[in-house]
């Protein structure tokens, strides 16, 4: 279900906690699984549960509690825009509007080519860098003007084509 590399990463996370406290690695295991599969299906959740010797329902509870987990498929690039007040005062909503217009989708939607999903985010702890966006939960982009948003979309499209060719 998960690659050897992913399992090795999960094992490294488990090793951070005292013996018998494997459950502490559940957030990391779900994150690593999501990074590999794009989203968390029931099967993946059950697999993680078995791997960490936890009841599936306990893993499911964790997966639903934390906002950065996706329990439904998302586009290849999930773009989360912070619209909380400090960002909103400095263009957060303008940036979100620009992305909506360029992608032709609203929050919580995915483009028809399956490339982009747009999400509204809460404070990312980077308010002095507004507008702030996060790509696939990992890469943060700061001070996003409309031009920089456009070139980011461009480069993500190019990156995706590149991957497609390989």
């Amino acid at each position: 279900m998960l690659s050897q590399e992913a399992l090795a990463r999960i094992d490294r996370e488990i090793a951070k906690y005292p013996p018998g406290k494997k459950q502490s690695a559940v957030m990391a295991a779900l994150r690593i699984a999501q990074e590999e599969h794009g989203w968390l299906s029931q099967e993946i959740i059950s697999f993680v549960a078995e791997y960490l010797e936890m009841p599936p329902v306990a893993v499911y509870e964790v997966a639903t509690f934390y906002n950065m987990f996706d329990l439904k498929p998302v586009g290849r690039y999930k773009i989360t825009v912070c619209t909380n007040l400090p960002c909103a005062l400095s263009g957060g909503e303008h940036a979100a509007d620009h992305l909506k217009e360029r992608l032709g989708i609203g929050f919580g939607e995915t483009t028809s080519d399956g490339l982009f999903t747009l999400k509204e985010g809460e404070c990312m702890g980077a308010c002095g860098d507004a507008p702030v966006i996060l790509v696939n939960n990992r890469r943060m982009f700061c001070r996003m003007t409309r031009e920089r948003l456009d070139s980011l979309l461009e480069s993500l499209r190019a990156e995706s084509e590149e991957k497609g060719r390989r």
Partner: peptide, 19 residues
């Protein structure tokens, strides 16, 4: 992984415990 409430210290401990 995206839960403001985990900044509250006891929620944070629960979270480290994998809950």
């Amino acid at each position: 992984y995206g839960a403001y409430i985990c900044g509250e210290e006891t929620a944070l401990l629960e979270s480290i415990e994998g809950k």
